[in-house]
Every structure is written in C-alpha cells, then in structure tokens.
Design a protein around this nucleic acid. Sequence first.
DNA 1: GTACTAACCGGACCCAAGTCCGTTTCACTC
DNA 2: GAGTGAAACGGACTTGGGTCCGGTTAGTAC
Lengths: 200, 200
Amino acid sequence: MTDLPLLPLPLAGEPASERSDAARNRAALLCSAQALVAECGVDDVTMDAVAAHAGVGKGTVFRRFGSRAGLMIALLDQNETHWQAQVISGPPPLGPGAPPWERLEAFGLSRLETTMLHADLLRAAGTGPSRSAPAMSFVVQHVQHLLTQLGVTGDVRLLATALMAPLEIGVLDELRTRGIDTERALHGWLDLARRIVAGG
Amino acid sequence: MTDLPLLPLPLAGEPASERSDAARNRAALLCSAQALVAECGVDDVTMDAVAAHAGVGKGTVFRRFGSRAGLMIALLDQNETHWQAQVISGPPPLGPGAPPWERLEAFGLSRLETTMLHADLLRAAGTGPSRSAPAMSFVVQHVQHLLTQLGVTGDVRLLATALMAPLEIGVLDELRTRGIDTERALHGWLDLARRIVAGG
DNA sequence: GTACTAACCGGACCCAAGTCCGTTTCACTC
DNA sequence: GAGTGAAACGGACTTGGGTCCGGTTAGTAC
C-alpha cells in the first residue's frame, strides 16, 4: 500500500518467534512480491520470480508462506494492518468519535472500497478464508461492537458475519456480472444494515 | 446425485447445439467425473484420470469444460437441476403451496443443507462464481419473489442477494473455523431473514 | 454416393505449483 | 570461541493443469 515496514501484524499475536534469517527473508519476499505484483499484475507473478527477485530459493518461499495463496494472504494482511489502524485510531467517522450508526456506514463504505481495491489479490488468495483468520476476526468483532452499541440483541456475532458477507469479493463479482455497479451495491448494503439495526 | 441423464440444464437455455459426438463425450465425462469423485474424493481426481476413465483424450475434457473448475461447476449444475425441480414443483413447504414465510424458511434450510452436502465440490469449483450464473440467478430470483410476496419493498434483488450471501460455502467454512455449528448458523440466518422482512 | 467444411478429437508438450532432502546457518551453552 | 541441535536454506524433481496443432469425423449439399 505505502511503505513496507510494519512487520508482523501484531493484532493477534502468537508466539512465533522467528530466527533472524527467516524474518529477513520473509520481509524481502513480501517486498519483492509487492513490487512484482505492482509491475506485472497478480496473475503473472510466479513463485519462482518472487524467489529470484528476493534472492532466495523457491523452497524458502513455500516454507514461509505455505502456498501461493498464503503469500497473497500475507500481502493482504499488510494492507489490512494499515486499514485496522484507521478504524481503531483514525479520524471519524471511520475511527472513534462519531455516533455508532455513522461509524457503521463509514465502515461499510470503507470495507467495500478496500475490497474493490485489492480485488485481484483477494481472488488470487483463493476460496475459503481468502483473508487471514485474524483479519476476518477483527472485522466481525468491530461490527459486532457497533451493532451492540446500536441496541441490536440476539446472536449479534452471527448478524455481524451476515452483514459483512455481501461485501466479500465473490458476491461483489457476481453482482457486477449482473450489471449492478458499486454504488447500487453500497445502497443495498446500507438498507440491509438499517433493517438489522431496526430489528432491535 | 441420483441417475445421470437429465441433460443440459434447460432452465436457462442458450442455442448451444452440440455435435452428437461432442454431446456423447460430455455425458461420458460427467458420468466418469461423478464416479471418480465418489470413489476418491474431489481432491484426488485429476483431469487425466477423468479423461482416461471416459475413454477420451485430455484435450476433449478441456474443450468441453474449459478448466477443472468448469468441470466441477458442471457437476454441481446436475445436482442443482434436481434441487430446482423440488423448489418449482416439489411438495411444500419448499415447493409451492405453503405461505411465503414458511417457504422462505424451508428454502434457507434446504440451501444450507445442499451447500454443506456439496461443500468439497463447491470449494474445488473455486473462487468467484463457484456455481454457474444460471444457478445463482435462479436462487436470487426465487428469494426475490418470496420477499416481494412478504411485502418487502426497495431494492429487493439486492436484498435477496445479501440474504443468500451468508449461506455461501466460504462464509460457512469460516463460521465453522470459529466453532459455530450448522444449527446455530441456520438460526442466525432465520433471524436475518426475519429482520429483512420486518423492515418492510 | 461423393465432396466439402466446420467442428471435434487426441495426446505430446509446456509451465508453474508444490515437495524433498542434503547442506548451511543461527542461537544458545559451556 | 568451539560445540551442538534445531531450524532454515536451495534448487533439482515431481505432478497436474492447461495449450496446440495435425489428423479425424459428423453433418450437409449436390
């Protein structure tokens, strides 16, 4: 997104102490991957190319990230970290300080924009959990928090998950296939949010 | 699912007249693919194996289905056709004859069950439109119809899409990761549906 | 029945993801 | 600062998805 430092995504810290050479290679690989993606597009970046650009062997790439999808998820996590910072301590209405409903509106808009911005990376990250579990957990917890503030009761965790589901890249792609543009999708999402909140 | 005939999935007919040998090979390939999936599991079925089992060349498989994901989608479409028949003309409450709200409840349950039943096939069908466009279109149109009958107004098409989004395999997988079982997911979905309908 | 064309067929071939294992490096101890 | 074990490294190797093009066949016109 912007600069690369920012390291390991501390928001869901596991022990995971890495040896120094391993950490260095991880950083170099992420940096190389980001550069190559920016240059050639996601689909034309091969694992060999990333390894070569970072000056390490291919085995190292797979040791660090497990698979191509894993590498893409790691790239996404970098951006996610920036975005989480905006939500936690950035300016309102996305950050704290605005009334809950306005924060929820801003959150949906921002999430939609972010997803569209990284659409190709998300698609390359594959089916299933295309974002890392901590990243998804953050989103759901924040929405759950806002819904609770808005007086929503019941299985709020599930409602939060359901509310975010239509903003997944797969659903958005499908909407676009049917000629529904982003703005209409956003209005639809706001209507959905309104109904969930109104349901009490 | 059961027998194989049933041919081309006529619910969204395009011209697509196929030469007789091509049609024969398509049927043989689908049959072989289904058999191999049943025998070895989705992940261990290779395109070579399907081609060999059907007695055709590998090129023919890709000519007919475009990709591995395309083959999986075609398999799913077969099942989908059976399921659509249940919705259109099967017994209530899934089929016609029951009040709209009961039909919607039954629809959600049935959809959830179907998705879980073909979970591995859906995952192998990949990201993006993991079901064929006609199949998704049917689902959305039916829900849209039921919501309209229930007095929902606004962008009902989008609301219908949003209501089905939490039942996609990716979301369900993620829920299970967090220890949320299918029954709880269903209750959550019913709550969501209730709120959408109550919103008018 | 023959000629003709467009579509189809097959399987050798290419490319990139992912694995394996002998070698090297780090971090920690004495 | 030498020793040691666990972890990381690298790149050859395997596997399977996807492409290509020369040869074949279905369908049609005469």
